[in-house]
Design a protein around this nucleic acid. Structure first.
Lengths: 339, 339
DNA sequence: CTGAAAGCGCTTACAG
DNA sequence: CTGAAAGCGCTTACAG
C-alpha cells in the first residue's frame, strides 16, 4: 500500500535511481529508449513524483500562500480566483487560508504556511492587524510577501490596492453633480484604513456643497451585510431620508437598495445609492449600482506578480507599491434614466 | 540568509539535534530547563519548523486539497469557506485549486496536489468530468477523496450533495400550489447531473397541473449569469410571459429578477421567480427569493469530515454517500405579500 | 550513457 | 537525561 518511489521504479526498469531522476527531468543525457522503458515502469507502478522530497534538495516548493479575510465578499472571491489563476499559470499551487478577520487566526495561518515552506504569501490583512503581528509572522520568518487591498498603518511592505481616496473623491464629485445635499455612509469596520480613505475622498469630492456626512454607521464585523437594521438607522437618523446612501462596499450598497425598496423607496429615483468595488452583481442588478471599480482581478494579478518578482530576486528589494486607478461606473442607482 | 535548521539550533543551545527535535514535540523526557534554553535559541535564531522535512519520516503533510469549479458562485464560496474552517479546526492546511469547469485544468490540479502529497482531496467536479478522468487522477494515485455537489455518473466514491431531485419536487409543488401553469427553466449546463435532477423533480412536483417546461434554456458555461439575454429568450418564447421562471441556481434567479424588473415586470407580482441553493443574497434582496436551501456550509463540513474519516481508516472503506435533505424557503418572489 | 555516494532537515529507535 | 546513526525520497556532482 505504500507509494512507489524512484527506487522501486529503478528496480522495475533495471536502472539506477539517478537515471530515473534524470528521466523525470527529461534530461537529454538519457537516450529515448531508456526514457521510454523508465516511463513504462512509472506507469506500471503508478508512480507519483514526490515534489516535497525534491524540495529538500534546495528546490522551491512551488507553492504560494494566500490569506484572505473572508471569501464570501465577491470582491475577495474574485481576487482569490485571480491569484489562483496567475499562480497556476506559473505552475504554482495555492495554499488558502481564511482569517475571518480574526488576527489570532491569521497569525496561525501565516505560521502554518511558513512551516509548509510556501515560497511567499499574498495577504489581505484582517481588520485591526497590528504591524507587530506582521513583523513576527512575516519578516522574522523571512517569508516574502505582499499585502493587498488593505494597508496596515506603520508597516512597510509590497502593497497593491485601489486608490481608495481617489475612489471616494470620484464618487463624491458625482454625487455633488447629481445634487446630493445630505449623504449617509454605511458599513465597514470603523477603524479600517480603506474605510477612512473612502470617506475622506468622498467628503473632498462633495465639498463645498456638503461639508460632512449626515450619518456614519460602521458595522461591527466586516461581513455584516445585514442592511435592514442599518437602513432603519439611516432613515431614522435624518429628517426625511438622506439624498444619497453610500455603502462601504457594493455588498452593503446592494443590501441598502433592497432595504429601501422594501420601504417603498426606489433607488435612483427616491434615494441615490452607491458603493465601491464593482462586484459583478453591481452591473447585473436592476437598477444597476453606481460604484467605483476597484479591479479585484487586476489587484490579485498584480499582487501575485509582485510576489513572483520578489521570489526571483536575491536581495530583498525596496517595497513596491501598486496603486490601481479607480474608475467610476455610473448606473441607474444614482441616475434614474440609466440602466 | 539560509533558514536555520535544528542543527543550527542545537549548536546554539549546546545540545544534539535529537534533543532539539524532542523539544519541538514537547517530550517529557526533556527537563524544563533544557527546553527553555533550546526554545531561547530557536527564538534567537528565528527558527521555523520545517514540516515538510518532518513529513519525510512518514508523517502526514497535514494538508487537504480542495478543487472547485469556480469560487465566484456564492454557493461554492460558502462551501469553500466551510471546508477551510473545518480543515483548520483539525489543524490541516488547505490547498485550493479552481478548475473553471475545465476538465484538463482539473486534471493538472489533481496531479499537482498528489505531487504535493496532500492527505486527501475534496472535489467539486468540473462539468463534463468523465469517470476515467477521476480513476486516473484519484484512484490510480491512491489519493483519498470525496466528491461534493456534483455527481459524476458511473463513478463510485464518497459523495456529499443536496438531494436535487427532492429539491426540485419541493419547488414544483410550491409553484403548483401557487397556480403556475407554465414554467420556464433557465441556466445551468445542459448535461449536468444536478440540472437534470432539479428539472426531473420540478416536473414531478408540478404534475398534474403542468406536464412539461414551457421553456428550457441551458447556458453554455456554468458561471454565465448574464440573465438579460436569457430572459429575452424566455419572454420571446412564450406567448406572454410564463407564470414562473426557475433558475438553475439562485445566481440565475437573481439575474432574472433584475431583468424582469428592467422590463417593468415585478417579480412575485407579475411573474414568480425561484432558484436553488439559498445563497445569502436570496434572503437579503427585496423581494426575497424563494429557493431551496442546499446548505453549502453543511455540505462542505460533511465532505471534509468524510475525508478526515477516510484518512483515519487503514482499509479503503465502502464509499459513503451523504444526501442533505433540502428545505424550501418561501419568500416574496413567489408570494407577493411575503418578504 | 549510467551508477554509487553524499546530503537536504527532520525523527526515531538505540546506546550510554 | 542526551548523543550518534540510520533513513524518509529525492538530486547532484563525480566517476567510470
Amino acid at each position: 500500500m505504500k507509494r512507489p518511489t524512484i527506487k522501486d521504479v529503478a528496480a522495475h526498469a533495471g536502472v539506477s535511481k539517478a537515471t530515473v531522476s534524470l528521466v523525470l527531468r527529461d534530461s537529454d543525457q538519457i537516450p529515448e529508449s531508456t526514457k521510454a522503458r523508465v516511463r513504462g515502469s512509472m506507469a506500471a507502478l503508478g508512480y507519483v513524483y514526490n515534489r516535497r522530497a525534491a524540495e529538500m534538495r534546495g528546490f522551491s516548493s512551488r507553492t504560494l500562500g494566500l490569506v484572505v479575510a473572508n471569501i464570501r465578499n465577491p470582491y475577495f472571491a474574485e481576487l482569490t480566483q485571480a491569484v489562483e489563476d496567475r499562480a497556476h499559470a506559473d505552475r504554482f499551487t495555492l495554499l488558502l487560508g481564511c482569517s475571518n478577520d480574526d488576527v489570532q487566526r491569521q497569525r496561525e495561518l501565516l505560521r502554518t504556511m511558513a512551516e509548509q515552506r510556501v515560497d511567499g504569501v499574498v495577504l489581505l490583512p484582517a481588520n485591526r492587524t497590528a504591524p507587530a503581528d506582521l513583523t513576527a509572522t512575516l519578516d522574522e520568518v523571512g517569508m516574502p510577501h505582499v499585502l493587498v487591498a488593505r494597508a496596515v498603518p506603520g508597516y512597510q511592505s509590497n502593497y497593491v490596492s485601489a486608490d481608495n481616496r481617489a475612489a471616494g473623491r470620484l464618487l463624491g464629485e458625482h454625487l455633488r453633480e447629481r445634487g446630493a445635499r445630505s449623504v449617509a455612509f454605511v458599513g465597514g469596520v470603523a477603524d479600517s484604513v480603506p474605510r477612512q480613505d473612502r470617506i475622506a475622498g468622498l467628503l473632498a469630492g462633495l465639498t463645498p456643497r456638503v461639508d460632512g456626512l449626515a450619518v456614519d454607521i460602521p458595522s461591527e464585523r466586516d461581513a455584516d451585510f445585514e442592511a435592514p437594521q442599518i437602513v432603519d438607522a439611516v432613515i431614522g437618523a435624518v429628517p426625511g431620508a438622506p439624498d444619497a446612501v453610500v455603502g462601504y462596499n457594493d455588498m452593503y450598497a446592494l443590501g441598502i437598495m433592497s432595504a429601501l425598496r422594501s420601504r417603498g423607496l426606489e433607488p435612483g429615483r427616491d434615494v441615490m445609492v452607491a458603493g465601491f468595488d464593482n462586484v459583478p452583481e453591481a452591473e447585473t442588478r436592476y437598477p444597476g449600482l453606481t460604484t467605483v471599480d476597484g479591479f479585484p482581478a487586476r489587484a490579485g494579478v498584480a499582487a501575485t506578480e509582485l510576489l513572483l518578482d520578489a521570489l526571483g530576486g536575491q536581495e530583498p528589494s525596496e517595497p513596491q507599491v501598486v496603486s490601481l486607478e479607480p474608475v467610476l461606473r455610473v448606473r441607474g442607482s444614482t441616475v434614474a434614466d440609466q440602466t
